[in-house]
């Protein structure tokens, strides 16, 4: 049983990597989110450790316990300190992720169950299906719209996620540190084919931007 549990650890941990993992960031915004994830994990681990120690103490022989130290020292002040630190970190990172300052603008339009993108090309603005082209090394604002239900744009390796809402235009900032192909998906359940509502983001070398896009959905 113990061996099976140990053998399962690498299998479970393998889920922490891959093209759709927040923990494999490929840009500064996604890197911030990954740091926040690790900070929250550390905070949760500290609080869990405190609870485990209390449970372990409960199994020992009866003893005098300094109630004030456990209830207020650990239960209130320690927990509050962990929560305050993680909240401050979340606020700081949240502010850094917001679309402040200049950025390239591209449009992403969602519908059941596909994405279309409009961005600069060598022959003016070009529309593609299922493939978003961006330059690497600079911030990109994705302007999100939807024509039917609520969808959500998410490229875990490049940034946070944002809803695409009918009748509204939302703005999400993403950035790729290096040229490459990144996977994206709809992160809000939107109907029967929700799971297949995927797309790709191709980050180009800045020297080759804008790319030559000759037809809808084409690769350069």
């Amino acid at each position: 049983m113990k061996c099976a549990a140990l053998a399962a650890v690498p299998l479970v941990l393998s889920g922490c990597t891959g093209p759709l993992s927040t923990l494999s960031p490929s840009g500064p915004i996604a890197q911030d989110i990954a740091w926040l994830w690790w900070a929250l994990l550390a905070g949760a681990a500290l609080l869990a450790l405190m609870v485990f120690v209390l449970v372990a103490l409960g199994f020992g022989r009866p003893r005098e316990v300094a109630e004030g130290r456990w209830v207020f020292g650990m239960g209130v002040w320690f927990s509050l300190a962990v929560l305050t630190l993680t909240l401050a970190g979340a606020l700081w990172i949240g502010e850094r992720m917001l679309p402040h300052g200049p950025a390239l603008e591209v449009h992403a339009h969602a519908r059941q169950w596909s994405w279309s993108f409009t961005h600069p090309g060598t022959t003016g603005r070009t529309e593609t299906e299922g493939v978003l082209h961006i330059p690497a090394g600079r911030p990109v604002d994705v302007l999100l719209t939807s024509s039917d239900v609520i969808h959500s744009f998410w490229v875990p390796q490049l940034g946070g996620k944002m809803d695409a809402i009918p009748g509204r235009q939302n703005r999400l900032r993403i950035e790729a540190a290096r040229p490459g192909t990144y996977e994206g998906l709809c992160a809000e359940f939107c109907g029967l084919e929700h799971a297949s509502m995927r797309f790709e983001v191709i980050a180009h070398d800045p020297a080759a931007w804008p790319p030559l896009l000759t037809m809808e959905g084409s690769r350069p």
């Binding site: 305050t84 909240l87 606020l91 949240g94 502010e95 917001l98």
Partner: peptide
Amino acid sequence: LYTMAPVLVAT
């Protein structure tokens, strides 16, 4: 106080 304080600083 705790939950409303960020309102004064965050976007």
